[in-house]
Amino acid sequence: MFGEVEHELELHVPAREAWDLFGGLEIGKLVGRELPELFQKVELIEGDGGLGTVLKLTFAQGVPGPSGYKEKFTKIDNEKRIKETEVVEGGYLELGFTLFRVRFEVIEKGEESSIFKSTIEYEVKEENASNASLVSVQPLVTIAQLAKNYLNKNKHAN
């Protein structure tokens, strides 16, 4: 069974400023610092924020779904401003998912605005199809709002 959920949020900063936050490790550092209700820890396991980087995400107590997992940066396109990560260990893979991919995309809207689009794509084995209900765009909505507030506060600081 294949599924997809997505969320879009307008950011009042140029796409290049938003991409500076989302394109590498900065968003992970920000989330690790500012969202203790969502993430207990965001750890860099391997890499420097480029392709092949591995992060270990540990969710806070009470967050629905798996307690954590390791994800790998599988695609980074600086020109199109797209970054994809896939769960490579633990988490959703232990719940019968064969794919759990998160895509961050920054779309230029105008000189001073952009759209942040986040998408979760997943595949789950038929015998575990009921676990698809654990997939929620809500953590991405929370991350997008945090990023928007951060970018607005630090507008043009680059």
Score class of each variant (00 low, 15 high):
Phe2His: 10
Phe2Lys: 15
Phe2Ser: 10
Leu9Val: 13
Glu10Asp: 10
Glu10Thr: 13
His12Ile: 00
Ala15His: 03
Ala15Ile: 05
Ala18Met: 09
Trp19Thr: 00
Trp19Asp: 11
Trp19His: 10
Trp19Ala: 06
Leu21Gly: 12
Gly23Asp: 06
Glu26Val: 00
Glu26Gly: 01
Ile27Val: 14
Val31His: 00
Val31Gln: 08
Val31Asp: 09
Arg33Thr: 08
Arg33Lys: 15
Glu34Lys: 14
Leu35Glu: 07
Glu37Ser: 14
Glu37Arg: 06
Leu38Gly: 05
Leu38Asn: 07
Gln40Glu: 14
Val42Gly: 00
Leu44Cys: 09
Leu44Gln: 03
Leu44Glu: 10
Ile45Met: 11
Glu46Met: 01
Gly47Ile: 02
Asp48Leu: 05
Gly50Ser: 08
Thr53Asn: 06
Lys56Pro: 01
Leu57Ala: 12
Thr58Gln: 08
Ala60Lys: 05
Gln61Glu: 15
Gly62Tyr: 13
Val63Tyr: 12
Gly68Tyr: 02
Tyr69Gln: 11
Tyr69Glu: 13
Tyr69Ser: 11
Lys70Gly: 02
Lys70Gln: 15
Glu71Met: 08
Glu71Arg: 04
Lys72Ile: 08
Thr74Gly: 04
Lys75Ile: 07
Ile76Asp: 04
Asn78Arg: 07
Arg81Gly: 06
Ile82Asp: 05
Ile82His: 01
Glu84His: 02
Glu86Ile: 02
Val88Met: 00
Val88Ile: 15
Val88Arg: 04
Gly91Pro: 13
Leu93Gln: 03
Glu94Thr: 13
Glu94Gln: 15
Leu95Cys: 09
Leu95Val: 11
Thr98Ser: 15
Thr98Gln: 03
Leu99Tyr: 07
Leu99Phe: 00
Leu99Pro: 04
Arg101Gly: 11
Arg101Gln: 15
Val102Ser: 02
Val102Phe: 05
Val102Glu: 09
Arg103Pro: 05
Arg103Phe: 01
Val106Glu: 10
Val106Ser: 04
Lys109Arg: 14
Gly110Phe: 06
Glu111Arg: 13
Ser114Asp: 05
Ile115Met: 14
Thr119Ser: 02
Ile120Cys: 02
Ile120Pro: 10
Glu121Ser: 12
Glu123Pro: 02
Glu123Ser: 11
Lys125Pro: 00
Asn128Ile: 01
Asn128Cys: 03
Asn131Phe: 03
Ala132Gln: 08
Ser133Val: 13
Ser133His: 04
Val135Asp: 03
Gln138Ile: 08
Leu140Ala: 09
Leu140Pro: 03
Val141Arg: 12
Ile143Leu: 07
Ile143Ala: 13
Gln145Phe: 07
Leu146Gln: 09
Asn149Leu: 04
Tyr150Lys: 03
Asn152Asp: 14
Asn152Trp: 07
Lys153Glu: 15
Asn154Arg: 12
Lys155Asn: 07
His156Ile: 01
Ala157Asn: 12
Ala157Leu: 03
